[in-house]
Computed example of a mutant assay.
Amino acid sequence: MKLIAESGSTRTEWALVEDCHIVQRVFTEGLNPYFQTRREISRSVRLGLPELFFKKKLEQVYYYGAGCTTNEKKNILGASLVAQFKTPIQVESDLLAAARGLFQCEAGIACILGTGSNSCLYDGKIIIKNVRAGGYILGDEGSGAVLGKMFLSDALKGIAPKELVNDFYEKFRISANDVMESVYNRPFPNRFLSTISYFLADYLDSDYVYHMLTGNLRNFFVRNVCQYDYQNYPIRFVGSVAYSYADILRDVAEEFGVTLETIEETPMPGLIEFHALNIEEV
Rank of each mutant, 00 (worst) to 15 (best):
A5S: 12
A5V: 08
E6V: 08
E6R: 02
T10D: 04
R11V: 11
R11S: 14
H21T: 15
V23T: 10
V23L: 14
Q24V: 05
Q24E: 13
R25M: 12
T28C: 13
T28V: 09
E29W: 05
E29G: 08
N32A: 10
R38G: 08
E40S: 14
I41G: 02
R43F: 14
V45T: 04
G48I: 05
L49E: 05
L52Q: 11
F53C: 08
K55I: 07
K56Q: 12
L58E: 04
E59I: 14
E59K: 12
Q60A: 14
V61Q: 00
Y63A: 08
Y64A: 06
G65T: 05
G67P: 07
E72D: 15
K73E: 09
N75M: 10
I76S: 02
L81V: 09
V82R: 10
V82P: 00
A83L: 11
T87H: 08
P88I: 10
I89W: 00
I89P: 00
V91F: 07
R100G: 04
G101P: 01
L102C: 08
C105H: 14
A107M: 14
G108E: 02
G108F: 09
N118V: 08
C120D: 01
L121H: 13
K125T: 14
K125C: 11
I127R: 09
K129C: 14
R132K: 12
G135M: 06
G135E: 10
G139A: 09
S143L: 03
L147T: 02
K149Y: 06
M150Q: 09
F151T: 01
L152P: 01
A155S: 11
L156E: 03
G158L: 08
L164W: 05
V165P: 01
Y169D: 05
K171M: 12
K171E: 06
I174K: 02
S175E: 04
D178G: 03
V179A: 05
S182Q: 12
Y184K: 07
N185M: 10
N185I: 09
R191F: 04
L193D: 02
L193I: 10
T195I: 13
L200P: 00
L204I: 12
D205F: 09
S206R: 07
D207Q: 03
D207M: 03
Y210T: 02
M212P: 02
F221C: 00
R223P: 00
V225F: 00
C226L: 00
Q231M: 13
P234N: 04
P234K: 08
S240W: 00
A242V: 05
L249R: 00
E254Q: 14
G257P: 01
G257A: 07
I263P: 00
I263G: 00
E264I: 04
M268G: 04
L271E: 09
E273C: 11
A276K: 14
